[in-house]
Amino acid sequence: MKAKKEEKQEKFVPYEKSHKLEKMKLFVIIVPFGQAQTIEKYLFNLGVTAAFCSTGEGTGTREMYEVLGLSDSKKQAIFTIVKESIVPQLIEKLKHRFSVSKYSKGIAFSVDITSVVGVSIYKYLVNNREV
């Protein structure tokens, strides 16, 4: 009986063996207060599923602020997890956005993610609809 049961069970194949995994990055985008929604729109158009927004304060030097023409130092930071394949497009969009006007200046950087726990969380973050 036991042998029959084992035969019935499908052989377990880890997700990373059966699918090609895409690398992910944590993108942090810091923009002047009130402009986070615009950036989020860009992100969701590119197929990003998760973005976390928080408020902070800028501490740039006086000279830097004069160059950029900023007086308000309140900032919004967006922490988002994106897959590596859309990073070039996102960088282009951000470069364009930051060069629109001196009031839309910002800074963005990314840090590599080394691990994710849970297949469903991974699927959600990389937005793999076809799987």
């Binding site: 200046k105 963005a108 990314s110 840090v111």
Partner: peptide
């Protein structure tokens, strides 16, 4: 400190 892989900004 963390290594930064991409950077956009001033």
């Amino acid at each position: 400190t963390l290594p930064v892989s991409d950077f956009v900004g001033p």
